[in-house]
Design a protein around this nucleic acid. Structure first.
Lengths: 204, 204
DNA sequence: TTTTGGTTACACAGACCTGTGTAATTAGTC
DNA sequence: GACTAATTACACAGGTCTGTGTAACCAAAA
């Protein structure tokens, strides 16, 4: 049943270790020597698989860029579920903020490559929210998606400095208010009629 | 009229330059040599005023910890004004996120001193929101203040990677919805009566 | 067996960093 | 002028980092 022990390629082993160290301790704080030592390989081998540390950093971020899995739960549940999984991640002791935001903060405004992938990631999250909102028939899906993204990133930043998983719950409560205000039924309180209220979901 | 040219002390000159370089290019990216060279002083002089780079970093962050000036505008206006000034700062080309969040991201979870001042700063902003909300008679000032802080930090993080001042406007719109939902009149739409609505401000 | 490809150990270049030591210099004050 | 305090120039120790060069090694394929 379980697939064979997955003969992990050397490249993947390097990436996996780089990911752990870069993310937990910072890209600038970790040297290639440290990564090689952690795996138990020589630095030469590492450089045989990645031409430079920059290339390794880029590969690290690209590997972090996982797209959301499709789900058949109702869209509103999916949206709010985001905040639940955020809370779970905040509670894990190996959470240290958003790797993309951290990379931009660490590497500075000069590193175009890093910024580019960070933008792409943030945008993909926003689009995901927007699609769920459109499914719900929300009129101003675009604007609301942006606001939800702000709550996500805000809670991540707050948790990064405060180590407080409650930030995810606070974000979820705020998200509920915003959704309800847009005419989405999120349980617990009646949707209030509003000028910007969405029509009933007519999609497909 | 204008005060005399302000005979800036050497310490202040160092701090000012360190601030500019640390904030714009990153703490790890800037060496003490660079700071000294930028001012045109010797590295020795810098070390005569600060015992170590760590001390300089701490002083830099403490100097960034400016407390909000008291205002006599109505509290709701003050709260929303936060997002306006955020938008102005986003539009400036020398904005590069929150120095405290950046420092925590750069220096990692080990640096207790940096984390401590970052927490203190974030908390002071939350308290400021809470006080304004209490003045408005909002019942759940505590929870709402946290949510507003999420919007602030979220828009900062988003602008950091996207360079989009519109993030501040989006945060402001979300804040309006949250305030309105708590019974605060923010103009443009009637406050909706709610279970959690605040009583009329009875404070002092 | 011979060949081939990935790997290892290890030294090293070149850069940059923090922090110190020292003697000379400047500027202000008594 | 003489004394004092800050500043300067400059070398340097000791550390870290990225990236390369090289010869030996090992295992599997031909």
């Amino acid at each position: 049943m379980a697939p064979p022990p997955a003969p992990q390629t050397m490249k993947e082993r390097i990436l996996e270790t780089a990911d752990k160290l870069f993310y937990l301790q910072g890209i600038r704080a970790i040297g290639v020597d440290t990564i090689a030592a952690e795996i138990g390989i020589s630095k030469r081998t590492l450089y045989n698989h990645f031409p430079s540390k920059d290339a390794l950093i880029a590969a690290y971020l690209e590997r972090r860029f996982v797209h959301a899995r499709p789900s058949d739960k109702p869209p509103a549940e999916q949206i709010l579920g985001t905040f639940d999984s955020l809370e779970r991640r905040f509670s894990a002791k190996d959470f240290r903020g958003c790797p993309f935001v951290n990379a931009v903060a660490e590497l500075g405004p000069t590193d175009r490559a890093v910024k580019k992938i960070a933008i792409a990631f943030k945008e993909s999250r926003r689009v995901w929210f927007r699609e769920r909102l459109t499914e719900l028939g929300v009129a101003e899906a675009e604007a609301l998606a942006t606001q939800l993204v702000l709550l996500v990133d805000g809670s991540i930043a707050q948790d990064l400095v405060r180590d407080d998983p409650a930030m995810a719950r606070a974000a979820k409560e705020a998200a509920k208010v915003l959704l309800r205000n847009a005419g989405v039924d999120v349980g617990g309180g009646a949707a209030k009629p509003t000028a910007t209220r969405g029509k009933r979901a007519p999609q497909q």
